[in-house]
């Protein structure tokens, strides 16, 4: 199998499990309704809904991976006000929940950048969700212009990436999210420069630091 197919197959497997989980909850709810136990049915339906939403998100992500890997020109560059992009990402990350940590956002670039708003937002939401899963108390989302590049950083105060993770971003066994992030960075090409994904430990909060640099 090619690395891309590998990544996609793994994601489909997870989505399939999520759907089976939802199905099981729906069966519980149906039985509870038959038994006249609304108090049991409602939480089961809520759990089913959550599982379906998660599976749908995963499938959306896989479609993105497929599109980013396959199409000749998959990014659509548009002028994007960076403050708006950060606001969208915050809303979506907060909606998806993920731990009790707080997200602190700081947009230090007050202007427009040429990028693909949707794929960059997807990538940052994914990075924030990962950070929220591992953070102890706090996650920082920061955007700034550095050396002519838009640098968007997601940092947390968790234990950091495992030793292998940073290098895994470029290996065939990387997760869907990292695979997408790396492709997104690479596909943003302007004036002869390509974007870049940097993963490191010991960032501003001492934990993992995910850095997307766009030309």
């Amino acid at each position: 199998m090619t690395p891309t197919v590998d990544v996609i197959a793994s994601g489909i497997h997870d989505a399939k499990n999520g759907m089976f989980n939802a199905l099981a909850r729906i069966r519980v709810a149906v039985q509870a309704i038959d038994d006249g136990e609304a108090g049991v049915a409602l939480p089961a339906l809520t759990e089913a809904e959550t599982a379906v939403v998660a599976a749908a998100e995963r499938l959306t992500k896989l479609l993105s991976a497929y599109r980013l890997a396959g199409a000749e020109n998959p990014v659509s560059l548009l002028p994007v006000y960076v403050g708006d992009l950060i606001e969208d990402v915050l809303i979506r990350a907060r909606e998806s929940g993920g731990g009790g940590s707080e997200i602190v956002a700081d947009c230090r670039y007050d202007g427009v950048w040429i990028c693909d708003r949707e794929v960059v937002a997807d990538c940052l939401v994914n990075a924030l969700q990962n950070a929220l899963r591992h953070a102890r108390r706090e996650v920082h989302l920061d955007a700034a212009e550095i050396d002519g590049q838009l640098v968007i950083t997601v940092a947390d105060d968790g234990p950091g990436f495992s030793d292998q993770t940073p290098s895994r971003a470029s290996s065939e066994h990387s997760g869907v999210g990292l695979f997408i992030a790396q492709r997104i960075a690479h596909l943003h090409q302007r004036h002869g420069h390509r974007g870049e994904l940097r993963l490191a430990n010991g960032g501003p909060l001492g934990g993992a630091c995910f850095e997307l640099r766009l030309p």
Binding site: L63, S64, R67, N73, S76, L78, D116, R117, E118
Partner: peptide, 9 residues
């Protein structure tokens, strides 16, 4: 349709 972004751009 994610492809719509291509149209918009």
């Amino acid at each position: 349709e994610r492809g719509y972004e291509q149209v918009i751009s």
